[in-house]
C-alpha cells in the first residue's frame, strides 16, 4: 500500500510534517522551498543583500541551501559560490567535487579555496599537530571556514555570507551554549548576524528546516551531494549524545526543536546585552578583525607553517 500525494496523487515521498499531508517529489520540493522563503522573510535575511556568497561544502545542507536560494532568489540576488578544500584525506575531494557539480549545473559563478595552496596547511595537519596548535580539530576547522568565508566575501564584495546550518545544528548549538554558559556564543546563533566593520553579515536560511528535510529535498531533486562523516568528527562525547537525544525527543514531541529555537531567538536573544564588540582590534598579520593582536586564524597558521623553520618576522607573512 503506497502513500499518494494529497495534492496530485503521485507517489508520496514524505509528509509535510507528522500528521500532515503527503507530498510527492515535486510538491515536497515546493513545500521545502516555501519553508526556506518563510524563514528568509521572517528574519529579513536578504534585506540589503544584492550579492550573496553561498558557502557550499558539498554535503546535503549546503547543497540544499544553494538549490533553494537559486530557485527562490536566483533572479533577484547575485549568487557567488564558495567551496573550501580543507585537505582532509578521503573526505575533502569528493565534497569539493559535489559542490562544483552543483555550481556548474545551476550556472552559479564560484570559487574554490584550497587551504594547502593558499595558506600552507591542511586540517589533517592541524589534527596531527593539535598539541602545537593548542585547539581541538573541529574548533580549528570552524575558525578556518569562518575566516575564509569572510575574506572571500570581502574580496567579491558580497553583502552577506549564507551558510547551510539547519535546525538540528542550531538547536544543538543553542542547548550546548546554554549548558556551558556561553552567552556570547548564543547571540551568534541567530538566523542573521549583522555586519560589524570587516566582519561581513552572516545568514542562515535553513535555520527552520531540519536535517531530515534538507536530506529529503536534495534526494528528491537528484542533486549530487557527499554523505559521509568527517573522519575528525568525534563519535562520542556531549555533542553526538545531545544530537541523538534531540532526535528522539523530536519523535515524541514533534516540532520541539523549532519551538525552542524560534522562542530563544525571539524572546531571549533580544534581552542579552551584546558584549562590547569582541573583535575590535585588527590582526597585525592579515589586517582582519581580531580579538587580540593576532587573529585566531593567523595564530593557527603561524604555529603550523612556522614551526620547524626559523621564525620569520610576521610582517613578511602578509598576504
Amino acid at each position: 500500500m503506497l502513500r499518494r500525494c494529497t495534492i496530485c496523487g503521485e507517489r508520496a515521498v514524505a509528509r509535510a510534517a507528522p500528521g500532515r499531508r503527503y507530498l510527492c517529489a515535486k510538491h515536497y520540493a515546493e513545500h521545502f522551498e516555501r519553508r526556506v522563503a518563510r524563514t528568509v522573510e521572517k528574519y529579513k535575511l536578504l534585506r540589503g543583500v544584492e550579492r550573496l556568497l553561498v558557502a557550499v561544502s558539498g554535503g546535503k545542507d549546503s547543497v540544499a541551501l544553494l538549490h533553494a536560494l537559486h530557485r527562490l532568489y536566483g533572479d533577484r540576488v547575485e549568487l557567488v559560490g564558495l567551496t573550501i578544500d580543507l585537505g582532509i584525506e578521503g573526505y575533502s575531494s569528493p565534497q569539493v567535487e559535489a559542490a562544483k557539480q552543483n555550481f556548474e549545473a545551476l550556472g552559479v559563478e564560484y570559487r574554490v579555496v584550497r587551504l594547502s595552496k593558499e595558506y600552507g596547511f591542511t586540517i589533517d595537519e592541524a589534527s596531527r599537530r593539535r598539541k602545537l596548535v593548542r585547539r581541538p580539530t573541529c574548533s580549528v576547522c570552524g575558525i578556518v571556514k569562518r575566516y575564509i568565508m569572510n575574506s572571500v566575501a570581502l574580496e567579491v564584495s558580497a553583502d552577506a555570507v549564507a551558510t547551510g546550518h539547519n535546525l538540528d545544528d542550531l538547536s544543538l548549538f543553542t542547548l550546548m551554549s546554554i549548558a556551558q554558559g556561553r552567552v556570547d556564543d548564543l547571540v551568534k546563533l541567530a538566523p542573521r548576524t549583522e555586519r560589524a566593520g570587516r566582519l561581513v553579515s552572516r545568514i542562515r536560511p535553513l535555520a527552520l528546516v531540519s536535517g531530515k528535510e534538507t536530506l529529503t529535498y536534495v534526494v528528491v531533486l537528484g542533486a549530487p551531494f557527499h554523505h559521509e562523516n568527517c573522519p575528525h568528527a568525534p563519535s562520542d562525547g556531549l555533542r553526538p549524545k545531545l544530537s541523538a537525544m534531540l532526535e528522539a525527543l523530536e519523535d515524541s514531541v514533534p516540532e520541539f526543536r523549532r519551538m525552542m529555537y524560534t522562542n530563544i531567538v525571539s524572546n531571549l536573544l533580544p534581552r542579552i546585552t551584546r558584549p562590547a564588540e569582541v573583535e575590535t582590534q585588527t590582526c597585525m598579520v592579515c589586517g582582519m578583525p581580531a580579538s587580540g593582536k593576532t587573529c585566531s586564524f593567523c595564530r593557527i597558521r603561524l604555529r603550523l607553517v612556522e614551526s620547524g623553520k626559523n621564525r620569520v618576522a610576521t610582517s613578511s607573512l602578509r598576504g
Partner: peptide, 8 residues
C-alpha cells in the same frame, strides 16, 4: 536508511 546527522 540515510542518517540525517551526518555530512552537514
Amino acid at each position: 536508511v540515510l542518517l540525517a546527522a551526518s555530512g552537514g
